[in-house]
């Protein structure tokens, strides 16, 4: 029986987020909060592994109270348990402080039931650093396997996992001891349709919520803004390019003009 924990984050849907052109800030209210798309694949994979090998799937998030919604979404996807850590003390965390707080929560979860595998998304769509997963792995002192695109085998008795890790021009097959941590690519699976019983369970589900005081052996200096070495000093809208010249005339004339422009780069066409 495996115990798999997927780490998930609620994020603004950056595809439709609007910018306030005057202040150069994001109008967060303009974008609905969603489960980070990569994390949906992390949960899906955890649930598939559970179906194949038996076990339980827990999900963990750090976030403000409305993030409960993201946990409910994971219950719909088939997770068994949800944990959330939520406290002002966690606010303003960079990736180092985020991985610290999540690791403390994972240690507490592991006391109930030891963890065999942690699965994170490849990255979020808001901070999009991809640094939290490897950070958790280092803190738990387990191997990080980033960019997993396929899980080949998990063998708890013999204590190993075999996965395919995506590379720039292909992939590699890696064997690791268990427990370990995966960060997953989107191509690892297609999200299944949530069955009705899961939807009903999710609607009623209340996750376990912990504050910083509920976690054990926490060094408060390592939490939130205080525990974050990086500082966002300035935020601005990316410079708008000036815009180009539109070619005029009939389609044929436009095409002829375009050709004379590209053929100016003679070296390309010799």
């Amino acid at each position: 029986m495996l115990h798999i924990v997927a780490c998930i984050k609620q994020v603004p849907d950056t595809k439709i987020i609007k910018m306030n052109p005057k202040t150069n800030t994001m109008d967060r209210a303009s974008a609905p909060a969603i489960l980070n798309p990569y994390d949906a694949h992390a949960v899906e994979e955890a649930v598939r592994l559970k179906k194949k090998y038996g076990g339980t799937v827990s999900v963990l998030t750090m976030g403000p109270p409305p993030a409960v919604k993201a946990i409910k979404k994971c219950i719909e996807l088939g997770a068994d348990e949800g944990y959330m850590i939520s406290d002002r003390a966690f606010a303003g965390a960079d990736t180092l402080a985020t991985s610290y707080a999540l690791t403390k929560a994972l240690e507490k979860i592991a006391k109930h039931q030891p963890i065999d595998l942690v699965i994170c998304g490849k990255m979020t769509i808001d901070g999009d650093t991809g640094q939290v997963g490897p950070g958790i792995a280092r803190r738990l002192n387990i191997p990080p396997l980033t960019g997993v695109k396929k899980v080949v085998e998990i063998n708890k008795e013999k204590g190993y996992a075999i996965v395919q890790r995506k590379l720039e021009d292909g992939y590699e097959v890696v064997k690791s001891t268990l427990p370990c941590l995966f960060t997953v690519e989107k191509e690892i699976n297609d999200i299944s349709f949530a069955p009705l019983p899961n939807m009903i369970k999710a609607a009623r589900y209340q996750p376990t919520i912990w504050t910083a005081d509920d976690l054990e052996n926490v060094d408060r200096k390592q939490l939130g803004l205080k525990g974050s070495p990086t500082i966002v000093s300035k935020v601005w809208a990316p410079p708008k390019p000036e815009g180009g010249q539109l070619l005029e005339g009939t389609a044929q004339e436009q095409v002829n003009k375009l050709l004379s422009i590209i053929f100016e780069k003679k070296e390309l066409f010799q």
């Binding site: 180092l96 650093t129 991809g130 280092r138 990080p144 720039e168 070495p229 990086t230």
Partner: peptide
């Protein structure tokens, strides 16, 4: 900021520890 560079940098930042700016 390649798969390898990001993997290595994230791990080391945690151990040193220090800040790491992404991408």
């Amino acid at each position: 900021a390649t798969p390898t560079g990001k993997d290595l940098a994230s791990a080391i930042a945690t151990d040193l520890p220090t800040g790491l700016t992404a991408d």
